[in-house]
Amino acid sequence: MNIFRLLGDLSHLASILILLQKIQSTRSCRGISFKTQALYATVFITRYLDLFYDWVSLYNFVMKIFFIASSCYVLYLMKYKYRPTHDPSIDTFRVEYLLGPCAVLALLFHYRFTLPELLWSFSIFLESVAILPQLFMLQRTGEAETITTHYLAALGAYRALYIPNWIYRWFTEDMVDPIAVTAGIVQTALYLDFFYVYFTKVLQGQKFELPA
């Protein structure tokens, strides 16, 4: 564990708490892509199967449980409790275009040809593109509530912080995880556009609005 990874994980934790706060305080999931949330639940469930047979640490265990539980809870809130506030007609990204290629990539790139390792690879590739339905929705509506942008910023910060973590581990532990690093760099790059608007508008006190 190093400071970058700890801050990254805390940022990830914060992003989920911000998302829950947004849904509870506005009593609405307007502006949140159900598809992205469903992809994240899929990512956590397929990646954390090792919960049942591999002990890493209490920290690791608690975080995994939290990510699985909170992502399922968000799906419940969107699908049942606040269902009327979710508009599927603007959440139109075709997730099969993500799931298919990620499955193929997992078959091509993995560390071992076992079901848990294939699912791990799949989850890594899927996480790297899971935000696309959300960003696509943002692009379509052209604006977002400020709290939603804070959620996305925290999520992007989590990914960005994993990059110095990998550099640090490369030097101190001689450890490189090429699958996670490649997917992680792609994933972080997807946020660049969003970050530009976030820093130049939202953090200056303006509303998040994309140029027409």
Binding site: R5, D9, H12, R47, D50, D54, V56, S57, N60, M63, K64, F67, Y111, R112, E117, W120, Y162, N165, D174, M175, V176, D177, A180
Partner: peptide
């Protein structure tokens, strides 16, 4: 070189 027996990152 990484030992991929388990993945310690989240």
């Amino acid at each position: 070189v990484l030992e991929h027996d388990h993945h310690d990152e989240l």
